[in-house]
């Protein structure tokens, strides 16, 4: 029954009409430019007030929550091996401002954000979230990188937190996790899984010693 997921190939910068056509669970491959940015970059730009190292609006509108497995060669060139995403929910507090500063329309990462974030932050910014698969398909994503255009702030932030500007071709697979209406594939799937959880716990009494703040609501999530 698998193999039926719809595949979509998108060019960056991604256009609004392309985003509008995306449906939850579509498999996406990207061509063009993307850049990495996570807490190191967000802190510098949004908290310390530094300008982004280049004009992001002119560059591309795809921000990848990622640290590549990369090294710098003696001649200053880069060797990028595997590429996987890092969990995005930790960056939630920076995103409203980041959308304003960067003009990003696509966030690629691991695990998505909460549906509440999509509704209140992504929808007004007309942005969607694409999740990496696995996790993670580090070698497949690494194959999709044609060239490293730049590695900004490498000396200050290190390989993991630097802003890598990457030229990509058939970069994927990625899954559409949120659409322009702010729906979340993960939360939709969670609601189905949650229905079966009470049955699993039947007859298993709570432990003698509770943990402070502990909840028995199995619909809850760890993120957000």
């Amino acid at each position: 029954m698998s193999g039926m997921l719809k595949e979509v190939r998108l060019k960056t910068p991604v256009r609004d009409e392309d985003l509008r056509r995306l449906e939850l669970g579509n498999v996406v491959y990207l061509d063009g430019l993307i850049y990495t940015g996570r807490e190191g970059v967000y802190k510098r730009v949004l908290q310390e007030g530094m300008d982004p190292p280049e004009d992001l609006r002119a560059l591309t509108n795809v921000n990848f929550h990622c640290s590549p497995a990369a090294s710098v060669n003696a001649d200053g060139s880069f060797n990028v091996g595997a590429v996987t995403a890092t969990a995005s929910f930790r960056f939630s507090k920076w995103l409203p401002q980041w959308f304003e500063v960067s003009g990003a329309k696509v966030i690629i990462g691991k695990g998505g954000m909460s549906e509440a974030d999509y509704r209140s932050v992504f929808v007004p910014a007309r942005a969607v979230y694409l999740t990496t698969v696995g996790y993670g398909t580090g070698a497949l994503l690494g194959r999709g990188i044609r060239k490293v255009r730049a590695a900004h702030w490498l000396d200050d932030l290190g390989i993991a937190q630097a802003m890598w500007v990457l030229e990509v071709e058939k970069f994927g697979p990625l899954l559409v996790e949120s659409d322009l209406d702010g729906n979340s594939l993960f939360e939709r799937q969670n609601r189905i899984v949650n229905q079966g959880l009470a049955r699993l716990y039947e007859g298993l009494k709570p432990p003698s010693l509770s943990r402070y703040g502990e909840t028995d609501d199995r619909g809850e999530e760890l993120i957000g």
Binding site: G134, G136, L140, G142, R143
Partner: peptide, 23 residues
Amino acid sequence: FVLRAMLENYEAAKQDRRAMCAD
């Protein structure tokens, strides 16, 4: 779909001699 993608990924890692996961 995820499992099949991972199986492809293991192959790609071995063919390219690159790490299977960047983390």
